[in-house]
Amino acid sequence: METVPQQNTGFVTSKLEEMIGWARKFSIFQYPFVTACCGMEYMATACAHYDVDRFGAGLPRFSPRQSDVLFVVGTISHKIAPVLKQIYDQMADPKWVVAFGVCTCTGGFYDNYSTVQGIDTIIPVDVYIPGCPPRPENVLDGLMKLQEKMQQQKQPM
C-alpha cells in the first residue's frame, strides 16, 4: 500500500476494500452459540437440505478465537449472559453478530424474570433474524443480508 502514489489512493483503496469485503463475505467462520429451539433450525440450515455451505459459511468453529461471525441461536437467559459476553469479547476483530430467532432479538414471548430482553442489551448485533424459530429460508436471507453488510462496510485492516 505504501507504493501507491498519494493522489491515487482513493481509487485503489476502494477497490481493495471491495475485494477484501468479497473475500470476507464468502469465508464466514461462524461460532454457533446454540442454546435452544432455534438450534434445530440452525441444524436444518447447516445440513444437506438447505446447505449453508453455498454461502461460504459451512464451517462452524467452536472456538471464539477462530471465528468471525457469532450466531446467537436461541434464548439467552440471565444465567448464560455473562458467558455470551465473554465469548464475544474473545473473538478477534473484525467480528459480526447475528441474532438468530426472536428470543435473541427481543426476548420473544419470554417476557419474564429469567430471559434477557434482546441480546443487543449486552453485545452489538449486526443482523436480526426474527421468527420463532426462523425458517431456514429466513436464516439464509439473514445470512445474505450479513454478507451485503460485510461487502459494503468499511473494511478494518
Binding site: H78, K79, A81, P82, D111, N112, Y113, S114, V116, I122
Partner: peptide, 26 residues
C-alpha cells in the same frame, strides 16, 4: 436452575414475573 446471586424465589405467587436480576448489562 438460577444463579447464586438471585434473590427470592420466582415461582412464588408474590414474585412479579418480570422482576429481572441480570448479572450483566442494563
Amino acid at each position: 436452575l438460577l444463579y447464586e446471586e438471585f434473590v427470592g424465589h420466582p415461582l412464588r405467587k408474590d414474585y412479579p414475573i418480570n422482576k429481572r436480576q441480570p448479572l450483566i448489562g442494563p
